[in-house]
Design a binder for these strands. Structure first.
Lengths: 247, 247
DNA sequence: GCGACTTTCTGAACATGTTCAAATTCTACG
DNA sequence: CGTAGAATTTGAACATGTTCAGAAAGTCGC
């Protein structure tokens, strides 16, 4: 939407265009300042000055200040996907895989909690291109669901569950990210614990749902949950694979 | 925090100070314009001009533009509380009460969905005084939990559940409000349906949890959910009753 | 190498939230 | 009433995100 390069830079390419180099300079300078001072405390004038260019130049490469943070948001998704693809084979059990997927997601943005927060800023406006739940980030949402779905590869579930589980897990991830923002515990251990417990419960429920004998009690409830989730589900198209960062 | 009057005005008082009248003029003008054009599309200059005063005057009565919306946010809480208190006796069954509480909440803000959205804007910044999950709105959160708890009056639950249910329901309400923002269905029927289904499921689970015989299967799971919720719970003090709008 | 075209860069100008010193109005008291 | 002090009002000034017309640099066919 905002940026059209796949990588969030942070890694020089020798074959860059001049324009690409300038763009990267803007991005990197901005991110450094954002991290040092925070998003709102960093001025577009600060950025352009620090990057040694005129104000208008920064605006030539990014249509707005929030486009810079949008670019960062995208880059985290691609990095996460690449990480999961690489580490998937090392984890066989469902719960291990889920844990790997979600832990890596959280670890990846852990250092940038404050920045992450600025992205949630647009959640209340469905029309906003950066709303994490809105149309504007649809493709990023699909990417994210697809990444999570990698952990489910090969598992068999009752149809209603199979359909909704990826999106439900995506919702769980969103919740965890929000929780992370508010988590002041040392090393954000509370977030990780919350994540682990939620996953344990999820796996437990899933295994119950798969046992036909115990099911009569649980299944109607699960079905109802499914109904609710189905109702709540943002209309996600089937995930489209876009090539993740190759580097 | 921002405003110190309890009511969100919208109702003239004959015994108003001049200052109060001016303040109300600012508020009402602002709300009208916000509703007509949206929050971001309304300028503080628009407001002061429309209200027939200088720019600085508006700022004398509200420290910032967002303080106006904060005042609105508070007023919805007080109105909701008053409504619930008034209608509680008409509903005896738990599910009816919950339904009344949550439906009225949604109905109350239904017409102001876009405005509501601007409040969610600060959720990503825990430090921000208007973050609906942050310190700054703590007392409003407590009010809201207290309002919801009115629906639970007289019910008996296992201790773990009794402790966490109010906050969990508050979370449900938050979720529903967020969902409402994105709900484009006619009359926001989807939100109401989602609410009804969630409540039905909740009541169902609660009733199971109360039956000691069926419990062995369900209780450990519920306990785990409780653990998760307990972990996730924002540290809410016991609700402090502040007098709701008397009018 | 040159001219035409495109890409990139520049900084002045604009809109809008916010601040503030000064002006005005109000209130209370003698 | 008259005046000191408080409350309220005013609008100019400031900071910052954004726009834009024009300048500068780069590219390409000849």
């Amino acid at each position: 939407m905002f940026s059209n390069d796949v990588k969030g830079s942070e890694a020089a390419q020798p074959d860059e265009t001049k324009a690409e180099r300038t763009r990267r300079k803007v991005y990197d300078t901005a991110m450094t300042l954002f991290r040092e001072r925070g998003f709102d405390e960093t001025t577009m004038r600060d950025i352009s000055q620090q990057a040694g260019m005129a104000l208008g130049t920064a605006y030539y490469h990014f249509p707005s200040k929030e486009a810079i943070i949008a670019s960062y948001y995208e880059s985290t998704q691609y990095r996460h996907h690449a990480y999961v693809v690489e580490h998937l084979s090392g984890h066989k059990a469902l719960q291990d895989r889920l844990k790997m997927v979600f832990h890596s997601k959280i670890e990846q943005v852990q250092g940038d909690r404050r920045l992450l927060g600025t992205i949630f800023r647009y959640t209340g406006d469905p029309q906003h291109p950066l709303s994490v739940l809105g149309e504007g980030t649809r493709s990023l949402q699909q990417q994210s669901v697809a990444t999570i779905s990698l952990a489910l590869r090969g598992e068999r579930f009752p149809r209603e569950i199979a359909e909704l589980l990826p999106v439900a897990l995506w919702g769980l991830q969103m919740g965890a990210l929000l929780y992370l923002l508010y988590d002041t515990s040392e090393g954000q251990t509370r977030t990780f614990r919350l994540m682990d417990q939620s996953l344990a419960l999820t796996v437990q429920l899933l295994s119950v749902a798969r046992k036909p004998l115990l099911a009569p009690i649980i299944t109607p409830i699960l079905r109802q949950v499914s109904g609710i989730l189905g109702d709540a589900r943002i209309n996600l198209q089937p995930p489209i694979k876009q090539p993740p960062t190759k580097e």
